[in-house]
Design a protein around this nucleic acid. Sequence first.
DNA 1: GCCGTTTTCGGCCCGACTGTTTTCAGTCG
Length: 574
Amino acid sequence: MHNMEITWSLYELADLLEIRGGDFFKLRAYRNAARTVAGLPEPVEMLYREKRLTAVPGIGKNIQAKIVELLTTGKLEKLEKLRREIPRGLLEIMALPGVGAKRARFLYEQLGASSLDELQQAARDHRVRTLPGLGAKTELELIRNIDILRKRGGIFLLGLARQLAAELLEFIKILPGVGRAEVTGSVRRWRETVRDLNILVSSGDPGQVLEAMAAHPRAREIIQRQQDIVKVMTWWGIPVEIAAVSPERFTFTWFWHTGSKKHLEELQELAQARGMELGSEGLFKDSGRMEINIKSEEDIYTLLGLQYVPPEMREGRGEVALASRHELPELLDTGMIKGDLHVHSNWSDGGGSIEELAARAREKGYSYLAITDHSQSLKIARGLTPERLREQYDLIDRINEKNKDFTILKGIEVDILAQGGLDLQDEVLETADVVVASVHSGFKQDAETITSRILQAVENRHVDIIGHLTGRMIGQREGYAVDVQRVLEAAARHGKIMEINSSPDRLDLNDENVSLAREYGVSIAINTDAHDLKRMDELEYGVATARRGWLGPGDVVNTLDLPDLLEILRNKYK
DNA sequence: GCCGTTTTCGGCCCGACTGTTTTCAGTCG
């Protein structure tokens, strides 16, 4: 069983217990364990076999027993029982903004609302505002938020789709007769959210591959079954379409299924202008009579007189015109990244020690890593006071003395306070190598207020990087009302760096704001903001976002060697 | 629920914001 599924089970268990009114600390223990499992760098099953599971902080005897039950039976009786007791819709209601476990339960008890539909109807009938503690404003918010959710229905985070893809590909590749297997569609283009997952397989016996996929344990039901395509709904909630083709058809189909629609349309026009025909069946010359043999995707672009366009750029945003002039920028590559400039250690709310994080960074081939824990005002994250920060920096100095080929940078993620100003004095910030400034409060302030807060941070001479500029959580929370252009303009003026936060549920800056930053000439840092070792791997999502915003290595400061990076960090204020 | 070694019981993480309130409960980061 996948670690992710254990995580979900534990989270669901905590949510259901919370609706029933469980002990706060017990719930927290389940959620901590869930988060820990998600962040484990190896399969839980292996840890258990090697008797190392209870050594993991946050996993004791009881939670281990639950995990073992999941591993051996695939189910958790306690969870199954709660699921029978509590309508599933309550979890969806509980996930609405402004609604927690208590309110979800209250609405269920008072109005009988056990699904989003029923709740929305009750709200429309003005039955919510009659309840004690709830008023007209809440009622309207409920209606609105349920609408938003509906419109967004069926959209999944890229991170989830990619995890599922990795698991399915592993399975497909060991099936007999399978040649290549690759993801296509929007997942291959690294769009931040996707509607489904598309996989293309080459096989001499497509039927057999599709049968196997339809019977895969992740498949819940078969949505569609044709000659060479099977579409299944997975237990993860993501629809997956697997298409099988002969090895000769693989390359072209892979290209065609990758899209985007707009990109392909532009290519079709171009083909026509060159006396060719491009369609789902292939590339043809002599007015469609003769198919051109395609060996690689590069061939297709070359035949159309274009530079090769990487999947991340295939969005019909002007890349075809650029490729026809052979002016595509050289894109950044994950291998070019030399360090991560925003991670959290267990000094604040991170899971790993500074030594562990540094070791992981070395394994990844980095030559530096900035430890940027939260600052004091963020109590829930055990933000650091100036005193603890000094202790941490002393420790970092001591660790650095032992390692000559790797450098831990002394950093801080300083809070941009709700009333303006930064959470730490200049004298403290001065002692840091890297200062990331981010907003964690006052999310609902108007554009002027929140923008001026951030501008103040940009203007502070000690600030190097602005973290997750808009604060959005994809699919959960809109970003702040910040005026992105004004901030980018100021960042350019003051030589400040903007972060691409690589977390798949943030991707902030997003691809469009990355483009904008590039136009303003603002330097970018691609950071993970990891709170555990595993999430340090999410950098590739940030890199993909950079590529979708057409960034090259020269635009990104953490492609620099340490001396050059330090030079920039020291000379940032202009 | 987890954790600890001067604890096997009694701590665990707090404070702002919001909408609804006459003094607070629930949510959220």
